Simulated scan of single mutants.
Amino acid sequence: MRDLIELVLRRENYVVQTAENGKIALQLLDTFGPDLVVLDLMLPDCSGYDL
């Protein structure tokens, strides 16, 4: 699902970063500074609510 969302957004010329778990997502939030986050609440290493 993550790959599909990324593909669609890139086709619409959005700059996209993806993360496969909460740890990577936290790192990206600090370095990438997104305007919008599409977040799965059931991540493999933490809850999306906790993130």
Rank of each mutant, 00 (worst) to 15 (best):
I5V: 15
L39A: 05
P44F: 06
I24L: 07
L36K: 03
Q27K: 14
D30E: 07
A25M: 04
Y49K: 14
C46S: 14
D35H: 11
L4K: 14
E6P: 01
N13I: 06
E12M: 12
R10V: 10
V16D: 06
N13R: 10
C46H: 00
L39G: 11
L51R: 08
L7Y: 11
D45E: 05
V16Y: 05
P34K: 02
R2G: 15
Q27S: 11
V8P: 00
D50W: 00
R2W: 08
G33S: 04
R10S: 13
L39S: 10
L7H: 06
V37C: 04
R11N: 14
L28M: 13
V38P: 02
L7I: 08
V8A: 12
G48H: 11
L26F: 04
M42E: 10
E20I: 07
E6I: 03
D45K: 07
M42T: 06
L51A: 08
D3H: 01
E6R: 11
G22S: 06
L28T: 06
M1K: 15
T18S: 09
E20C: 14
L29N: 02
P44L: 10
I5P: 00
Y49R: 12
D30R: 07
Y14M: 09
D50Q: 13
V38D: 01
G48I: 06
Y14N: 12
V8Y: 08
G33P: 00
L9I: 01
V16P: 12
R11M: 10
L36H: 03
N13F: 12
L28Y: 14
R11V: 03
Q27C: 03
L28W: 08
C46Q: 13
P34H: 08
M42P: 04
E20F: 09
L51S: 05
L4P: 01
L51Y: 04
M42L: 05
P34L: 02
A19E: 11
P34T: 05
T31P: 00
A19D: 08
Y49I: 07
V15T: 15
V8E: 09
D50A: 11
D35S: 10
T31Y: 08
E6Y: 11
P34M: 09
D30G: 08
R11T: 11
L7N: 10
A25L: 08
V38C: 12
E12R: 15
L26G: 06
D35Q: 12
L41V: 09
D50L: 08
Y49W: 08
L26V: 04
L51Q: 04
L43Q: 03
D45I: 11
D40N: 15
C46F: 06
I5F: 14
N21W: 02
D40L: 03
T31V: 13
N21P: 00
V38R: 01
M1S: 15
L51P: 13
L26Q: 13
Q17G: 01
V15G: 07
A19V: 02
L7P: 00
V8D: 03
M42S: 10
L26S: 09
I24M: 14
L28H: 12
V16K: 10
L9N: 02
V37N: 03
D40S: 04
K23M: 09
Y14G: 05
Q17C: 13
D40V: 02
L7R: 13
G22Q: 03
R10Y: 05
T18H: 11
D35C: 02
C46R: 15
N13W: 12
E12W: 13
Q27W: 10
T31F: 06
P44G: 05
R11H: 14
